[in-house]
Design a protein around this nucleic acid. Sequence first.
DNA 1: AATGCTAACTTCAGATTTTGAAGCGTGTCA
DNA 2: TGACACGCTTCAAAATCTGAAGTTAGCATT
Lengths: 158, 158
Amino acid sequence: MGRADLANTSCPVSRVIERVGDPWVLMILREAFLGTRRFDDFQVQTGVSPHLLSQRLKQLCEDEILQRRAYNAHPPRYEYLLTDKGRDLWPVIIALRNWGQTWLGGKTTTLTHKGCGVQMDPVMCCPDCGAPLGARDVQADLSPDFEKERKTRREGKG
Amino acid sequence: MGRADLANTSCPVSRVIERVGDPWVLMILREAFLGTRRFDDFQVQTGVSPHLLSQRLKQLCEDEILQRRAYNAHPPRYEYLLTDKGRDLWPVIIALRNWGQTWLGGKTTTLTHKGCGVQMDPVMCCPDCGAPLGARDVQADLSPDFEKERKTRREGKG
DNA sequence: AATGCTAACTTCAGATTTTGAAGCGTGTCA
DNA sequence: TGACACGCTTCAAAATCTGAAGTTAGCATT
């Protein structure tokens, strides 16, 4: 199958994973959320090789998660900024952070909700009743198409 | 640096990424949350090669994200179950799902909050005031240690 | 006008990882 | 006796990644 084929399933999770489910992409995103914008800074802070960084940044720009912008014309200098689409990946990074804090220990960032001024760790909630949500609190139902797709895969194998 | 060195930083995000920031690990987790437990099912549904699947499952068990359990003694048959630690990764998968739905389209799962019976998409919220949270609503402050670590990296380069 | 510096990359060879097909061990069922 | 299921393992070929070095473009200093 190969990683590229993840994009061809109907499952949005797979399709996202094809784009951002890569350690370096995630590191780049973490950096971007910390305010990093420049090639060399991404490189130093993530430790990725320049070759790969270059590739990943290109991909991220193609996917419109980042936007490459000249901040200086002479000499030409570029920076990478999160787009709205990219900024929307914030919950992914926060979810990783929360898990890391809980299960691996270490606390390197404190988050403050600007609205109410309190220090906190964001939580997944039900938008309707506001209750905090865990895996056990939610029931997932698959769409008929997705069920069919999964069944086909099961049969195609046997 | 190499991917393995991500574990050596003080940032919990990097350390999590070292463990779960891999496309196949994420796919395995998605499957696990959909109820998949067996080797061949993981293989068919994720499309990963058996070799890699075997490696990844081993890693995930070492990290106590999954638990390998015999469900049949003769012949010996095993299944892989999420541990509490693993189940706590649910927000990561949900965050990916939400982004995929919003930005890539396609809806393969409907989520229902068992508590209030409503269909919804979970949202990151402030646990204190309950407001939904985006990247712009939260201020991140780095710990002095983390600041120092980042500064060292910057200087070590120049 | 030569030297050095910065930023944003690109290039390339060697090392590592991944894929995909095939095979294996143990046991059940017909 | 033969076919099949499950949970893997093995291996060679292909793809990807690393790390060091180089490149381009321009400014600043000597």
